[in-house]
Design a protein around this nucleic acid. Structure first.
Length: 450
RNA sequence: GGCCACGUGGCGGAGUGGUUACGCAACGGUCUGCAAAACCGUGUACCCCGGUUCAAUUCCGGGCGUGGCCUCCA
């Protein structure tokens, strides 16, 4: 039995899918105009872990996970112009890198990766439906959602419409009936991507794409909707408004989950703050699995300050787990305590405590524990390599070439054989200064990045 | 300013109305030419002030601090 903290009710609730044969989850995906930063990766990793847990419980053919790709957006247009490439070139390149990066972090591909450019007819149909039932109106080539037409607007993110009116800090477009109204469709000039619509050539506003893609793939009401906390308002509030009003009041999602913000030096990591670290850059310095474990070592709802020390800790843990798991085949049965931890609102830190216990038993010789450890890790997308593959990971930049290192190791071993330990230690030190740690084992000397 | 989270040992990080979380780091020991790994052992904690209670880190109130949102944001 899974319990999920539902942001909407602000309580932990027992998870009961609408249809256990078709469990459905939607997560807000990337706008493809720039490299994904590590903060962008948090929801991907967190909800991938949930996806895997759901598949464990309901069967892999019974869980459907949609994560959209927003490939129509004004920032994309601006960036493409800046770089002197076409919008298509920019979105294709960015999406390709995004997929590579997310794969390197151990994420499964979602069941569906809908793109806005492939969902335009559904978006137009949804907007038309909103106009038809009085929740939207056309004004000067724009179509706007009429916030006052939905009395419950604001209840999801916990704000009153009075407060929103008072706090309105943007210039209110003259064609808006209410300052809170938001854009569903906006006109495009000849240089901007656009599609023909009943309201002229234009493009969708920010929020409608998620409503339309979710409807298309998962139906009017589905089980879980996820995303970053910062999306609660306005994005999710508006998504709810659009979908609920287009669907005659049907609920959009039964459970809402929001991951906490990733921080860097105590501040939210965001492009607007300028403190972003690209996933791509981190992957040059650390195995993707290290980043994945580091991400999951903190409960998904809490803020997470991204530090190098955290990466080091995660790597040390994985070194130990890989040693402990060895070549064991994953057990068929999952450790109960491990699953129980994950079932409790995806309590990954507690699940890792169980893995630590298993690792200790495995290192004392329990092959059953090794198998359980492997199975548990695999469930979360960890420990999927062989120990050899794990040990052979190399950072993109090293002070010494592989050949230089080998030459020094050979020289050191010759010195050791001659019992010239002063020289052997000098070579060890020299390599350590270059960021290389040597380990003398029964099978010879191996090395790894410090 | 409004709304909402959070505040645990050197660091990371769960959890609980009364009993060791766990990990990393540190220290001592076994082992090792050295180092690493492994194993054994050691230490340090629940922001402040009230309240409820036999008992609060855990519940309630206030304060302080940090973070998020308030139409760019994962």
């Amino acid at each position: 039995m899974i319990e999920i903290y539902n942001t909407e009710s602000r309580r932990k609730e027992v998870f009961a899918p609408i249809d256990a044969k078709r469990v459905r989850m939607y997560v807000c995906g990337p706008t493809v105009y720039a490299l994904a930063h590590i903060g962008n990766a948090r929801p991907v990793i967190v909800f991938d872990a949930l996806f895997r847990l759901l598949r464990h419980h309901y069967g892999r053919d019974h869980v459907f996970y949609a994560r959209n790709v927003t490939d129509v957006e004004d920032k994309i247009n601006a960036r493409a112009k800046e770089r002197g490439i076409t919008i298509r070139e920019l979105t294709e390149e960015t999406l390709r890198i995004y997929r590579e990066d997310m794969l390197a972090l151990g994420n499964l591909a979602p069941s569906f990766e809908p793109r806005v450019t492939e969902t335009i007819p559904e978006i137009i149909a949804m907007i038309a439906a909103l106009i038809a039932n009085g929740h939207a109106y056309e004004a000067e080539g724009h179509v706007l959602f009429s916030v006052p037409s939905m009395p419950s607007y604001g209840s999801f993110s916990g704000r009153s419409t009075d407060e929103l009116l008072a706090g309105a800090r943007v210039d209110v477009a003259p064609y808006k009936r209410s300052p809170m109204d938001f854009v569903l469709w906006k006109p495009s000039d000849a240089a901007t991507p656009g599609w023909d619509s009943p309201w002229g050539r234009g493009r969708p506003g920010w929020h409608i794409e998620c409503s339309a893609m979710a409807e298309k793939l998962l139906g009017d009401t589905f089980d879980i909707h996820g995303g970053g906390r910062d999306l609660m308002f306005p994005h999710h509030e508006n998504e709810i408004a659009q979908s609920v009003c287009a669907h005659g009041g049907a609920k959009l999602s039964n459970y809402w989950m929001h991951n906490g913000m990733l921080q860097m030096g105590g501040e939210k990591m965001a492009k607007s703050v300028g403190n972003v670290v690209a996933v791509r850059d981190l992957l040059a310095e650390w195995p993707g699995e290290v980043i994945r474990l580091q991400m999951l070592m903190t409960h998904y709802r809490h803020p997470l300050d991204w530090t190098e020390e955290g990466s080091r800790t995660a790597r040390t843990i994985l070194d130990r787990w890989y040693r402990a798991a060895g070549h064991a085949a994953p057990a068929n049965d999952m450790p109960a305590a491990f699953i129980a931890a994950l079932d409790d609102d995806l309590n990954t830190p507690e699940a890792f405590a169980v893995m630590h216990e298993l690792a200790a038993e495995a290192l004392k010789g329990s092959t059953a524990a090794a198998s359980s450890l492997k199975a548990a890790g695999n469930l979360l997308g960890l420990l999927e390599k062989t120990p050899e593959e794990w040990a052979s990971w190399r950072p993109a930049k090293m002070a010494l070439s592989e050949a230089d290192i080998i030459a020094r190791i050979d020289a050191r071993n010759a010195a050791r054989k001659a019992r010239n330990f002063a020289e052997a230690d000098r070579l060890r030190k020299e390599l350590l200064d270059a960021g290389i740690v040597l380990e003398d084992g029964p099978a010879g000397t191996t090395w790894k990045p410090a």
